[in-house]
Design a protein around this nucleic acid. Structure first.
Lengths: 227, 227
DNA sequence: TCCGGTCAGGTTGCGGGCAATCTAGGCCAA
DNA sequence: TTGGCCTAGATTGCCCGCAACCTGACCGGA
């Protein structure tokens, strides 16, 4: 119909369910270990079981929930081992993505990256840290997309959801959001200048710092973690 | 009940559907670009639409099919770009996996790897090449699992399905199955000896060789590829 | 011949219901 | 008190039906 609406698909109920459940899980409103009943979720989101089911299946692929045969669905636990696995993989993929993205940034994408950075700062302090973390994720995904390998970006996208949840768990104990933000601008600068090695090094440093923050926050006191 | 059946779950219909559809797609019995109707697949596999639907959703996550809004499901096309993306990512992940797996092989796993290698040789020539390619995939996944990072293994597992399909498309034109097989034993040897660098180098060489084979087979003549 | 409109067929998206089955808790016997 | 059994509840896995919607073909007119 309208030529001005090239893609104006009203998001399907499944998409809505995915978004809602992912948001609740990442924000730990649905805590690790908690069980989710299809019927309950369907009632809460005011839809049938079918979209809920599809949504949970997709989240299971991302590792955020897991199906327990006849017990329902459980929000995945976060173990120290999980943290190591996620950040090890990030350390393997993201510096390489940054290296390849260097010099490929066009002005459009550059503006987008900068906007994402700025967006991060705006948020206040308390629970709107979720806002920053979401922008942070989009920032990293955008760099991965710039690497030119869409599959790399996709795999990272999934893993960054897990990573975000870990950061949320970590930030609960010590809020260090602001310490992390100022690295983004320098990274964007290096990318724009085409300095691949420097960008990769910065990316490595940043991801490693995140890992240390999460580990420091979660290993010291009592553990929200479980087997 | 029985202590001898720790995990004797009769595979659910969904699992069966996933296995059957994946097999058909990897073997190109369902050709790239072909559309799959839920109803038709349900009738063919003698089950309802629900398991088919779940199975297709999972295969879509793996990139083997993609949902077209009201047209059904389409077996993903294979473009030259796809090939580059998959093998570039394999080249990034697999040598590192081999490096980390070195020295971690216990005798049990070693036997398993050897068995997988042998299995590859047994198959004849014609269409049972699928058998070899399946063993090849399990071989690579096993090494990734030995790296100690389960997420690395999972991500590789998904990508190797795509890779396998590309190899099938390539082998259709020139059968080079046998040329690739004898590299496995040396790789296992290096892994058992804990020579990480050598194992990584061998892995890199092997994956690169696969890529060249696929590209050589698919770029020269007419293209089964599409945009 | 060519073009625009209309209609029928086919497909998914989703809702609702049923049976199989697993778990938890109470109850009875020792 | 303690151990085992048994019932009741809850939950998924699956099937079936319906409406919305898109696609392609057919047909009438210019």
């Amino acid at each position: 119909m309208s030529l001005l609406t090239p893609i104006e698909a009203p998001p399907s109920l499944t998409e809505q369910a995915v978004a809602a459940l992912r948001r609740d899980i990442l924000s730990t409103r649905l805590a690790p270990g908690e069980t989710i009943s299809e019927a309950a979720a369907a009632q809460r989101l005011d839809m049938g079981k079918a979209p809920i089911r599809a949504a949970l299946a997709r989240l299971a692929e991302d590792g955020l929930v897991q199906a327990v045969p006849r017990r329902g669905w459980m929000v995945s636990l976060v173990t120290i081992r999980d943290i190591h696995e996620v950040f090890d993989l990030r350390l393997l993929l993201e510096p390489e993505a940054a290296r390849r993205a260097a010099g490929r940034v066009d002005t459009t994408m550059l503006a987008r990256l900068d906007a994402v950075c700025a967006e991060g700062y705006d948020c206040g302090d308390a629970e709107s840290a979720m806002c920053y973390l979401d922008a942070n994720k989009r920032f990293h995904v955008a760099i991965a997309e710039l690497s030119g390998n869409n599959r790399l970006a996709r795999q990272l996208d999934r893993m960054l959801d897990e990573s975000t949840r870990m950061l949320v768990l970590g930030l609960r104990r010590r809020d260090r959001t602001m310490e992390m933000a100022h690295e983004h601008h320098e990274l964007v600068e290096r990318l724009a200048l085409g300095q691949g090695e420097a960008a990769a090094a910065l990316m490595h440093e940043q991801v490693a710092a995140s890992r240390e923050m999460v580990l420091a926050a979660l290993t010291a006191p009592d553990a929200m973690t479980a087997v």
